[in-house]
Design a protein around this nucleic acid. Structure first.
Lengths: 242, 242
DNA sequence: CGTAGGCTTGAATATGGTCAATGGTTGTGG
DNA sequence: CCACAACCATTGACCATATTCAAGCCTACG
């Protein structure tokens, strides 16, 4: 039932750097199982101290923080290949929650094995740090979008980035990618109200720049949408897979 | 002239986790020198591929991204103890620039030694990943502030966080900390216009909640400012020092 | 003493938020 | 099989927060 790392479909994506033989051998032991969850489940809770860390194998989700008054900030969207639980794994406590938007399958690793990895497999430890650095970079980009772009440009920029991310894991077909979030999720990610997000998406749809309906996002002309957004999101560099 | 790590004044701060003897020995070799720069200098440039990474020993600065149209997003403020250059060190290219607001002294490490560190000193490698995880956490918090808080609350929140950060490195005296940035820097960090930032700071000053003048920030009653901000920034957990 | 950089202030404007209500779809219990 | 609830998308009207434009002021510095 469980997919062994040597048969992992994600390894076929150019987006991820290849494993060496030695790394592959290690990962086969490191992966202790799979977790399958329904859409709308909470995988990790802010403040929790999970004994496990994960890599998304399939499905989509959100990482978010909740404020006292119930408002919510979506920190990032999660896609196949994303590693989750680093904070709990290293610092001992999650600083945000993780929730699924679709059914999701996750590769499970034991937090307690992380330290062994650092001792015995420095190349994998290095890759984990690399993944953390990529995450930091992406958050900086998001911060820049929220701080410097108008609502309409923010939305155009975000749709492009989501489209890129889904493309690199092979989920694009003719400019169409599956995108299983609610408008509220995007609004919460971009710091906009649901109403304004809705109206802007509607405008993008009418102008033919981007069409996100029924769980599918269709961008016919990425360059045109990028021009509308002011500039395209930075291209995604290849990165390690855990 | 150069301060050896065993005499590093930062190690006296409770905020930083202590070194083991072995780590200390390693750091003494790992640190290859010091870099002293004037206020207003650029230490690292977006897109650059620096052969070195650094830890701030003294002084303050900003990490920021520049957009095509010249607008600027300050990603974070830099204080003693902050590690910079992880992205260049690991991914090979800086994704933001680093500029000083005051004169600054930096501990210099060779990027090429990083990999040796992962191989020979897993505890230090683990700490570096920890530092990256902390950075990720702080960026998530900033993102939440930009996305969910009104201008006035954002500013109050940011002043509190800056105050916290300076306190933990021992720079507070009677509620007063040195804060050597321009109002424009804060505006660029929070995604607000200079004018609005100025007016809000003025209001905070008049109401006695926070007084930031002439390079010093004075917060008499942190609890009251936190109430005004909606909620206090998350407390800063102890973290490793590199 | 003149200039540059940063801070301060007022007035006009617009971007985006809040409130309120409707319609479509899905799932569930009677 | 229908009634009802829950959830999400959509739309209009009104309003507030924050931007932009424009000026004046102060201090440090050559």
């Amino acid at each position: 039932m469980v997919i062994p790392c040597d048969k992992c479909p994600l390894r076929r994506c150019q987006y991820f750097l290849p494993f060496t033989e030695e790394e592959l051998t290690f990962m086969l032991k490191f992966k202790t199982g799979e977790l399958t969850v329904d859409a709308g489940s909470t995988v990790l809770m802010e403040g929790s101290n999970s004994p496990q860390v994960f890599t998304v194998l399939s499905g989509m989700g959100t990482r978010y923080k909740t404020l006292e008054d119930g408002r919510r900030q979506v920190i990032s969207f999660l896609f196949p290949g994303d590693f989750i639980g680093l904070q709990a794994g290293i610092m001992g406590e999650m600083k945000h929650s993780v929730e699924t938007a679709t059914a999701m399958v996750l590769c499970v690793f034991n937090r307690s094995d992380l330290w062994n990895m650092f001792k015995a497999h420095p190349a994998r430890a290095y890759d984990l740090t690399w993944i953390a650095a990529v995450e930091e970079h992406l958050l900086g980009e998001s911060l820049t979008a929220l701080g410097q772009r108008s609502g309409a440009k923010r939305i155009a920029w975000a749709l492009l980035r989501l489209h890129y991310r889904l493309r690199v894991v092979g989920l694009e077909k003719d400019g169409v990618v599956p995108l299983a979030f609610r408008q509220q999720d995007l609004a919460d990610a971009l710091g906009l109200s649901l109403v304004h997000t809705n109206k802007t998406l509607m405008a993008l749809r009418k102008s033919g720049l981007a069409r996100w309906v029924d769980g599918y996002l269709d961008i016919k002309d990425r360059a045109r949408l990028a021009a509308y957004a002011g500039s395209a999101p930075e291209p995604l560099d290849r990165r390690p897979l855990m």
